[in-house]
Simulated assay, not measured.
Amino acid sequence: MRYGSLDIFLSVATAALSQGPIAVIMAEDGVELERTISHHAGAGFRSILLLAHPDLDLSATAEAQVHRIDHDVFATSALVGAVNRLIPAVPGRWLYYCYNAEFLFHPFCETRNVAEMLAFHAEERREAVLSYVIDLYAGDLDRYPDAVSVDEAMLDRSGYYALGRPDPLNHNHPRERQLDFFGGLRWRFEEHVPADRRKIDRIALFRARQGLVLRPDHTFNDEEMNTYACPWHHNITTAVCSFRTAKALKTNPGSRHAIGSFRWRNSVPFEWTSQQLMDLGLMEPGQWF
C-alpha cells in the first residue's frame, strides 16, 4: 500500500506496525532498490517500510512487498528523522534501518532468520545490535561506472581499526565498551569524506521505546545501547554490506575523477555469505552457536 506522507502512514497503518521486526529502507535513488527489498524480505522482517521520492518507479512485485511512504529523501538527516518519528509509534518492536543498495547480514543468516537472531539477543538482555557498514564496490569501474555490481562485488579483507570513543562529560576519557570503528573506502579515500562521516559503526537494529532518540552519528541517547558487548561476554554483531559509499565517491563531482579504481592488494570478491564476514572478523556470533 502507498501513503502520501509519514504522518498519514502513522495515523492509519497500525497493522503494518503491529509485529516486528520492522525494516525501514530509504531509497536515495533506484540503484539496486528492488534487490534491497527482496533481500530484507527474505531475511525475515515482518514489515518493510520504504521511504521514497514520489516519482521513483518500482515494479508491482516490489510494491507488494513494502509499505511505500512518500518522503523527502534529500532533506538533512532524512532517514534519522523518519526513524525518530517511528520509534514512539512502535514501543517494544525491533527496528532496522538502511538505505538502498545496502544488505543486512547476521551470523548464520543462511539458516536462521533475523527474528530468531533477535530473540536470542533479547534473552541476553540486549536491546541493540552493533552493525559494521562494510563497503562493497565493483572491481571494474570501466564496466560499472557507478561502482555498483552485485555479481562482481568486492570488499576489503583488512584495513579496519577501532579507537576509543571519548566521553565529553568525563574529561574525554574513553567510554566503557564503546569504540569508533573505521576502515573500507571511507578510510582509504578519507580526503573525499567529511570527518564526521568516516565511522563505519551503526546501531542498525534496536528495540524501540518511548524517549529513545537516534542521533545523526547513528548512536542513541541511551549510552548502553551504543556498546559493542555486555559486561559479561561478547554479543552478536551484524554487517550492513553497502555500495552507498562507493556509489557516492564515483558520482560526486569532487571525487569521481580522482578515483580510477577501488581495487588494492587487500580487495577480495564478496561471496555473499555470513561465513566469509565472520572469517574476516567483520561480525561475530557472540555466544550464539
Rank of each mutant, 00 (worst) to 15 (best):
V193R: 01
A52P: 07
H39P: 11
P194Y: 06
L51Y: 05
F108G: 02
S149F: 08
A78G: 06
M278T: 00
G260Y: 12
F45A: 01
S158M: 08
G44T: 07
Q178N: 08
L130E: 04
N266L: 02
N226P: 01
Y97H: 15
L33N: 08
L169C: 06
E284W: 02
A60S: 12
D55S: 14
A64L: 09
G211C: 06
A23K: 04
L10T: 04
A13I: 04
L58E: 05
S261V: 11
I87F: 08
P231F: 15
L136W: 03
R35I: 05
S274P: 00
Y99A: 01
L185H: 06
G44I: 08
S38E: 11
F103A: 05
G4L: 10
E34Y: 11
H106W: 07
Y99H: 14
H173R: 15
L280T: 02
L214E: 01
L282E: 02
N113S: 13
D72G: 00
N100A: 09
R209H: 15
F270Q: 01
D135C: 03
L214F: 05
G81S: 15
C230E: 09
A147Q: 00
I236W: 04
F74T: 08
G81V: 12
A101G: 01
A23L: 02
L179H: 10
D167R: 05
G183E: 06
F9S: 06
W264P: 00
A75W: 03
R68C: 02
R2M: 05
L58N: 00
M117E: 01
Y96Q: 02
L205E: 00
A128R: 03
H257M: 06
A258N: 11
H40G: 06
L50F: 10
A246R: 08
H171G: 03
A204E: 04
Q210T: 10
R177K: 11
E152C: 09
